[in-house]
Simulated scan of single mutants.
Amino acid sequence: MTTVDAQVTDRVHTAPRIEARDITVRFGGLVALSGVSLRVPPRSIVGLVGPNGAGKSTLFGVLSGLLTPNAGAVLMNGVDVTKKSAQARAAIGMARTFQHPELFLSLSVREHIVLADRIRHSRRRIWSDLVTGRGFGRPASAEVERVDALVDALALGAIQHRQVGDLSLGSSRLVEVARALAVEPDIVLLDEPSSGLDIRETEELAAVLQRVVADKGVSLLFVEHDVDLVLRICDAVHVLDFGVKIAEGTPAEIRCDPAVRAAYLGEEIVDSDALSRAESASEQEAFE
């Protein structure tokens, strides 16, 4: 390996998986984002939160290539991709999920993962798999191993042969995550992954996200309304309000930030132990 090659390799391994630099987006006279910056390091989970209308979805659109900013830049692994399409960004290491799962209802869980794996490793087979109507052909042994590994990692073994149209919302979200990981991305953008999930499903999702970062080395950036989930599993959190970033830091720093508390009116960022104590005191008073 030459010195130049080594420098390039080192940059790829140490540069943020995705980075927004001073992003500004205007819709007519409305400033949706104003000078917003964000970095997602390798092998990390980063959360993006904020009240409704804060600009989270707009920033996600810019990062994923669906929106072009009026000012600023987007970089992946140190390379400027501001002008690249969503498809081009996917080809160089980006995957994403959506708030409402985008799945083929007639395909099984495993077929979704196989299809994504073939997009990454055997793109020519997509024609024979789907377009010609001949179904999924015999898999190669390496493909079976990769798909099995994802099925195991996301605990989908019991439902891998069921059609996704028959699944719960929580299971459907796990299928979306598995499909995103099957293309072996560097960065996955998760849009409201816990939306519609119950407490048990949210806990399972949190465990999966932490496990895939540890096992696969992927980085995750997710927009999420469940602030408690974000504060429990993220390495760093960025908070938007009215298109401006008002805070960034570790979960502990965000939990104590007065600007964040003001933005949420004290309703989302709360000490769960203090809440439990307050509820117990209230119940005791009610019986006295």
Rank of each mutant, 00 (worst) to 15 (best):
L229H: 11
A54K: 01
V212Q: 00
V25N: 02
A281K: 03
I113A: 03
T2E: 09
T58W: 10
H238D: 11
R17A: 15
S106Y: 14
G157T: 07
E288S: 15
A178M: 06
R200H: 12
R89P: 00
V147L: 07
R17E: 08
D215M: 01
H121A: 08
A281N: 08
V227D: 00
V114R: 02
V208I: 13
F98H: 01
D257L: 07
V164W: 02
V147N: 03
V114H: 05
G78M: 12
I23M: 11
G165S: 12
T3D: 07
P51N: 00
I45V: 14
V46S: 06
D5V: 07
L48K: 08
P16K: 05
S141K: 08
L63S: 01
A259T: 07
D186A: 13
G55P: 09
M1T: 08
T2A: 03
H121K: 05
R124E: 13
S128W: 06
A153N: 04
R120S: 09
E201K: 10
L66T: 03
I187K: 00
D117I: 00
F222H: 12
A207V: 09
Y264A: 00
D22V: 11
M76G: 00
A20C: 12
A247L: 09
L221H: 01
A88H: 13
R11F: 06
E224T: 05
R134V: 06
V177T: 11
N52C: 07
A54L: 02
S122R: 14
A71Y: 10
S108A: 09
A252F: 01
A259L: 14
N77K: 09
E192Y: 10
D148N: 14
E184P: 04
L181M: 11
D273H: 14
D215E: 14
Q210I: 01
E184L: 02
G28W: 12
R261F: 13
V244E: 15
L169S: 00
C234V: 04
V147K: 06
A180N: 02
G93T: 04
D152A: 14
A71S: 15
